[in-house]
């Protein structure tokens, strides 16, 4: 299982675009990939407000391999079900291990996310942090806004244009900011996003719910 997660996470991985808790009894596979940060996660939702997950972060570094693995509890802290919109606040708390070169340390993952959307507009912001027992290893701040060029029905293919601003602060590497326009397409339980940042980095994300 660990090998499977690790292999998948090398070519895919993410955070800041998905709901860490979904509907009751659902399984989620989510990946975000970029040349500077990758994140892969599997979630199982026991309730619509509570899920457990496993995560793999891969943070490329020229000096040594840097990656982290966590098990997490994910919570929907607050949901607003409006007449034409939905808003959510999520929290993710994880414990695991961070590895940099030959050094392996105990670590924690914390994440807070807010999103709100209707059928045409979408806004999300999230903040993630990985702390090892020694230091803050990663700070990841994401702000996204999206618009649907057409309002699709339930069984149609849905398309969104999304602009993402992202700031990664990796220990000993410094901050890296980037803006990426994404094209999101989803159909039924499958979602895929692809984008190229203003710095020329290709990123792609995917989610599947079962």
């Amino acid at each position: 299982m660990y090998k499977f997660i690790f292999i998948i996470s090398l070519c895919a991985a993410g955070s800041g675009w998905a709901h860490p808790v979904s509907f009751e009894d659902s399984k989620g596979v989510m990946g975000y990939h970029s040349p500077v940060l990758s994140h892969f996660q599997l979630n199982y939702s026991f309730r619509h407000w509570f899920a457990v997950g496993v995560h793999h972060f891969d943070i490329p570094d020229t000096r040594a391999n840097r990656f982290s693995n966590f098990v997490s509890t994910n919570f929907l802290l607050k949901r607003w079900n409006g007449p034409s919109y939905q808003g959510n606040i999520y929290a993710v708390l994880g414990v695991g291990q961070s590895k940099f070169g030959d050094t392996s340390l105990g670590a924690t993952l914390t994440k807070l996310q807010f999103d709100i959307e209707d059928r045409q507009y979408y806004f999300l912001t999230s903040y993630s942090q990985i702390n090892s027992v020694r230091e803050v290893e990663l700070q990841d701040l994401v702000v996204r806004a999206g618009v649907a060029p057409y309002v699709a029905s339930y069984k149609d293919i849905h398309s969104w244009l999304i602009l993402e601003w992202r700031s990664n602060n990796v220990q000993q590497q410094g901050a890296f900011e980037d803006v990426t326009p994404f094209l999101r397409i989803f159909y039924k339980n499958l979602l895929f996003e692809i984008g190229q940042s203003f710095n020329g980095l290709t990123r792609f994300n995917y989610i599947a719910h079962f």
Partner: peptide, 11 residues
């Protein structure tokens, strides 16, 4: 109420 996202309505 709140069913704005087809992806979420899967549930």
């Amino acid at each position: 109420q709140g069913m704005v996202c087809a992806f979420c309505a899967q549930g």
